Simulated scan of single mutants.
Amino acid sequence: MPTISHTITLAPLGASFSVQEDTTLLLALEAAGFDAPSSCRNGTCRTCICRLQAGTVAYTVEWPGLSFDEKREGFILPCVALARSDLVVDVPLARRVSFD
């Protein structure tokens, strides 16, 4: 079965990268050369919380550390989120990592 990938666009940077459906958004973001706040990487600390502007995600855990209202308002936890479509994600503190 072929691997499915989607395009992730980071707002407000406007930068894009690809992610496979079995890779969390946070891992894909880092692999693409970006940095964003994170800590626990298991959906509980909420350090990586950001807002999904467009698209659909699934989670690697049954109920990530988000309230019902936060989920309804489009907040996601990239450390445990998996892309199920192309996404636009508002990650205001994301930055491109410099290896200078």
Rank of each mutant, 00 (worst) to 15 (best):
G43V: 01
C79M: 01
K71V: 12
L52E: 04
C40P: 03
A28I: 12
F99M: 14
T7A: 01
G43C: 10
D90Y: 06
V57E: 00
L27R: 10
C40E: 12
V91Y: 02
V19P: 06
W63S: 12
T47G: 08
G33D: 04
A54K: 09
W63R: 15
D35Q: 08
D35V: 07
P37F: 08
A15I: 10
I49D: 03
R46E: 05
A83T: 01
L13P: 00
P64F: 07
V89W: 00
N42H: 11
S67R: 12
A28T: 05
A11K: 06
L52N: 01
I8M: 02
S39A: 15
L82T: 03
L82K: 08
T7F: 01
S39H: 15
A32D: 07
T47C: 13
T47K: 07
T47V: 12
L27N: 13
A28R: 04
N42W: 08
A31D: 15
T7H: 09
G65Y: 08
S18Q: 11
L82H: 04
P2N: 00
D35N: 06
L66Q: 03
R72A: 14
T7E: 13
R72T: 14
W63I: 13
A94Y: 05
W63D: 09
C50F: 00
T24Q: 05
C45P: 13
T60W: 08
Y59I: 11
D86C: 04
A32M: 07
G43P: 02
C45N: 12
E62C: 05
G55C: 03
L87R: 02
Y59E: 02
L66H: 06
D35K: 02
R96Q: 15
K71I: 14
V89Y: 00
I49E: 09
S5F: 15
M1I: 00
P92Y: 08
L66G: 02
L52C: 01
E73W: 05
D100K: 09
L52T: 01
A31M: 10
V57M: 00
V88R: 15
I4P: 02
L13R: 12
L52Y: 04
L10V: 15
S38Q: 13
G14K: 03
R84L: 05
D35T: 08
R51V: 11
T7N: 05
V80S: 03
A36E: 07
V88L: 05
L87C: 03
M1P: 14
G14H: 02
P64V: 11
K71A: 12
T47P: 13
D86L: 02
G65M: 11
P37A: 12
L13I: 05
S67I: 06
L10C: 07
D86S: 05
A15L: 06
A32E: 09
W63N: 14
S16N: 06
S38L: 07
V88H: 02
L25T: 00
E30T: 11
C48W: 01
A32T: 09
A83N: 04
L77Q: 15
V89T: 04
I8K: 00
C40S: 13
V57G: 05
L25D: 08
L27T: 12
C45Q: 14
T60M: 08
C45R: 10
D90C: 07
N42F: 10
F34D: 03
W63P: 00
S38F: 15
D69G: 10
